[in-house]
Amino acid sequence: MELKPLFYLSIFLFSLGLYGALSRRNALGILIALELIFNSANLNFGIFSKVWANPLGVMTIIFGIALTAAELVLGFAIVILLFRLRKTSNADEVSILKG
C-alpha cells in the first residue's frame, strides 16, 4: 500500500531491465530484460492511477499488457528466424549493419 516505495521499486526494476538490455548477449535475454522494463512501466501506471484516482491509468495497463504481448510475439518470431539463418542467437554476432 505504500505508494512511494512502490514507485521506487518500479524505478529499480526499470534500471535493472535497462542493464539487462544493454549487457545481455543472447537475443532472448535482451527480450526478457525488455519485458522487465515494460512491466515496470505498467506498474508505474498503476501507482499513479491510484494516486490521482483516474481510471485511465488502469486502462493503459490493460492496453500495455496487450501491446507488450503482441510485440514480444513478433520479437520472438524474428529471433527464431534469425537463429535459423545465422545459427546463432547472440546479438553481438549479428552486425551486418556495421559501419
Partner: peptide
C-alpha cells in the same frame, strides 16, 4: 565517426540511454 556504427543493437541502445 563510423566506428560508432558497430551494427550491434545494444551499442545503439547504449547511445540512446
Amino acid at each position: 565517426l563510423r566506428v560508432i556504427q558497430t551494427g550491434v543493437i545494444q551499442d545503439y541502445l547504449f547511445y540512446i540511454v
